[in-house]
């Protein structure tokens, strides 16, 4: 949270999300952690922002800094939010930690006119190599947990995610795939290259 007060350096994927959000929008950040993204959105885009966070430490930190955040669980609490209650609902690096990712995704596009999702790509070549060559569950910078203690219980590849969106009647309005060093790749999200070279994907979604 210390970083919140200094204007600027937030995670590159969060930086992209800030760019995508229209100024003054109503935003719900699901799994908002200690409020880093929410703070940036309120400061730089003057959004009417709310947060939902599972960890009490994160919630206390955010509320203690004046951000409207409630303690709650994306898996159980999203159903209480009204349809079209927000312009954007953001789920950053959290979908893979939910118990029912498809239901969560469907709630996101119901509650928001748009949903913005960022997620790690389990098809990233380093991840594939860990499994292929070492025969071990991958532990990388972005996926830094051992299999027995990871909160990430529903991994997918970029290709898997695009398929899920198709199945669920969700259109991808915009996407960026970030490769090594969090640099954007020139390849379209649906390409095999993006799924091989992309470490994470960012998607702007809307229900059909």
């Amino acid at each position: 949270m210390a970083g919140h007060e200094t204007n600027g350096h937030i995670r590159p994927d969060l930086e992209r999300i800030v760019e995508w959000v229209q100024p003054g929008a109503r935003v719900l950040d699901v799994g908002c952690g200690d409020g880093e993204l929410l703070h940036a959105l309120v400061r730089r885009k003057q959004v009417d922002g709310r947060g939902l966070e599972l960890s009490m430490d994160g919630v206390r930190c955010s509320v203690g800094h004046g951000l409207p955040v409630i303690q709650g669980d994306a898996d159980t609490d999203l159903k209480d939010y009204p349809s079209d209650g927000f312009d954007y609902v953001i789920l950053s690096q959290t979908l893979q930690a939910t118990r029912r990712p498809r239901e969560v995704l469907e709630h996101l596009v119901r509650i928001g006119r748009y949903a913005i999702i960022s997620l790690p790509n389990f098809g990233y070549w380093r991840v594939r190599m860990e499994l292929l060559l070492r025969g071990r569950m991958p532990v990388t910078d972005r996926l830094g947990h051992q299999w027995y203690e990871t909160p990430n219980i529903h991994f997918c590849t970029i290709r898997d995610f695009i398929t899920l969106c198709d199945d669920a009647g969700i259109s991808i309005e915009r996407s960026v795939i970030l490769g090594a060093g969090e640099r954007p790749l020139p390849h379209p999200a649906a390409s095999a290259r993006a799924n091989w070279l992309g470490e994470q994907g960012l998607f702007l979604l809307r229900r059909n």
Binding site: R60, P68, Q71
Partner: peptide, 11 residues
């Protein structure tokens, strides 16, 4: 939440 009010909650 169900009326999209501005709410914080801490235990």
């Amino acid at each position: 939440n169900s009326v999209a009010a501005n709410v914080s909650f801490v235990e």
